[in-house]
Computed example of a mutant assay.
Amino acid sequence: MNAHIVYASITGNNEDIADIVSDQLKKHGVEVDETEISQTDADELLDADICVVCPYTYDEGALPEEGMDFYDDLKELDLTGKIYGVAGSGDVFYGDDFNKAVDVYGEAFKTAHATQGAENVKIDLEPVEEDVETLAKFTDALVKAAGK
């Protein structure tokens, strides 16, 4: 089984989240590719059993500008049979816009006919020990959903 994790990060928090998810997947024996969103073509997800996106939310609910091509292309894919999960860091300071990109990417995966393997994870700022536990459960659910 293999997974592809795509992250967008300004502060490094989402790269940290991607690294944690990657480490957890590897503990399950999953082969993992981890790439930065501006360096990733959405169709690379077609080769993965599990697809994960770790986006940040900019300002008042905006998606990462460097990931707009990826986002637009993601919605056009047919990811039937693929398992997806979305986990991201944000700042609760933004209230209703806190981690909005996590939900928007989740909807894009649904548009692409992927199957949600784990509930969306929204982390306030950098991941702490309790978030690592949450991401381990997130990863466990993805692997279980993928049937391995």
Rank of each mutant, 00 (worst) to 15 (best):
G147F: 14
D91C: 09
A136G: 10
D131Y: 01
N120T: 09
Q116E: 15
G88N: 09
K110W: 02
P127Y: 02
H113V: 13
E126S: 15
L135E: 03
K137F: 00
A87K: 03
V104T: 06
G90Q: 12
V92K: 11
G147Y: 15
A141D: 09
V104P: 00
F93P: 12
A146I: 15
N120D: 14
A136H: 08
T111P: 00
V128G: 12
V102D: 03
K137I: 03
T115K: 14
L135F: 02
N99Q: 11
V104D: 05
V143L: 07
E107Q: 07
V92E: 13
K148S: 15
G147C: 05
K137D: 03
G117P: 04
G85N: 13
G85C: 13
D97Q: 13
K100F: 01
F98A: 06
Y105E: 00
D97R: 08
G88W: 07
A141G: 02
K100R: 04
A146Q: 13
A145T: 07
V102F: 01
I123V: 15
D131P: 00
L135I: 06
E130V: 03
D124M: 11
G88I: 11
E126Y: 14
V102I: 10
T139Y: 05
N120F: 11
A136E: 14
D91E: 14
A108M: 05
L125N: 05
K144E: 07
K100A: 03
K110D: 08
E126L: 12
G147Q: 06
A145E: 04
S89W: 04
H113M: 12
L142H: 02
F138K: 08
K144M: 08
D96G: 11
T111D: 03
K100H: 01
T134H: 04
D91Q: 12
A141Y: 02
A141L: 02
V104H: 00
V86Y: 09
G95E: 14
T134D: 09
G85K: 14
K122M: 05
T111M: 05
L135W: 01
F98G: 04
G88L: 12
A87N: 04
D103T: 09
V104A: 03
K122W: 03
E126T: 15
V102A: 02
T134L: 10
F138Y: 11
G147V: 08
N120P: 11
T134Q: 08
A145Q: 07
A114G: 12
E129C: 07
N99K: 09
T139S: 15
L125Q: 06
A118T: 04
K110Q: 06
G106R: 07
A118W: 00
T139F: 06
E133F: 04
A114N: 08
G95Q: 11
K144Y: 07
F93W: 15
A112T: 10
V92R: 10
Y94K: 00
K110A: 07
A136V: 14
I123M: 11
F138L: 13
G95K: 06
A101I: 12
E133K: 15
T115P: 07
V86K: 12
F138N: 09
D91W: 13
E107H: 05
Y94P: 01
